[in-house]
Design a protein around this nucleic acid. Structure first.
Lengths: 173, 173
DNA sequence: AGCGGAGGTCAAGTTGACGTGAGGTCGCGG
DNA sequence: CCGCGACCTCACGTCAACTTGACCTCCGCT
């Protein structure tokens, strides 16, 4: 264990607050050893793990999903470049999908700005086809873009939508 | 008041659950009259308002911001196409910015997949310049892309990041 | 030896956007 | 006039990702 880092050192280097690091550990995203006195000591590779977590959050993954991704790392050896690259590569489709969705939204919005409609009955922004209410009521086009046409009724449970919410709270001063 | 809609009718036509509609009313996003018995009756233009709210949420606005946008609508007359178009037009830069940010993220990710790095010291994905820690520690590039260079220290309070979080809960069955 | 700052645990609070359930009322078709 | 489904209010629950506070301990330096 060449360089054991305190929680403060990890915090300083990653910009992630100690409370968040403790939370990550409790959530099983990172791990640590303890000193005799019970203080955490982190191996250097947690820096990379923490960075991965932050970037993955920026890509739009929940901590739950990130845990899943991290679980596919080897735990007997320090992950190498290929390991991290494999995980990063998995984001690519997700990012592409999000971008495509936003672009679609923007383009449909362009079409609708001309008419200023947003009408539930006729606006393409809010309805997939030309017929309103084909797959039930509501602005489903946006929220359920790849809706299964073989199923009617309201959407089945929460689905992610590829647009921005709030940031995962940038560190406060 | 030609066609007064019950909350159930509005819910059915917009796909927004009654509880959410009540919430919107409590938050001042929509309004209603009441029957003698105290039940809500909505004018037809709330359908458009509710649609606007949902689309704006998809664009990434909080209800707070949406309230602000809606406040700029005339309240003495029913908003017309031009009014809605003006509001919609305001989303355009926001959408563009989000798309640009995601694309930047994707491109930087592409560059980093090759090296499989994500290193805090050298990875361009996590550091703006070639020098690490120029503006303090942490993956600030992603989270604070347009960081003010005239100011150092940690980011000042929560800022939105233009990437996806969870959807605002699609209606459950 | 002492001291101050870094670190520890645990419980509870925060934020946004609703959902849920209890307990009571309205309104309309028959 | 009756029933029953739709509607009402109000309080509380939920979820994610933390933060905050209270209270206590440890470590490294002088």
């Amino acid at each position: 264990m060449d360089q054991a880092l305190t929680i403060g050192a990890v915090s300083e280097r990653t910009g992630v607050r100690p409370s968040a690091l403790r939370y990550y550990e409790a959530e099983g995203l990172i791990c640590s050893t303890r000193t005799d006195g019970g203080q955490r000591r982190f191996a250097r590779d947690v820096l990379r793990r923490v960075s991965f977590v932050r970037v993955a959050q920026a890509v739009g993954l929940s901590l739950d999903e990130i845990r899943g991704a991290l679980a596919s790392l080897p735990d007997e050896r320090t992950p190498d470049h290929a390991d991290w690259a494999r995980l990063s590569r998995a984001w690519r489709p997700r990012l592409d999908a999000q971008i495509a969705l936003l672009e679609g939204l923007r383009d449909r919005l362009d079409g609708c700005i001309g008419c200023g409609c947003l009408s539930l009955q006729s606006c393409r922004l809010l309805n997939p086809g030309d017929e309103a209410g084909r797959f039930g009521p509501g602005p489903r086009y946006l929220l359920d873009d790849d809706a299964d046409p073989g199923r009617d009724g309201p959407a089945r449970g929460p689905r992610p939508v590829a647009v921005s919410r709030r940031a995962p709270r940038t560190p406060a001063p």
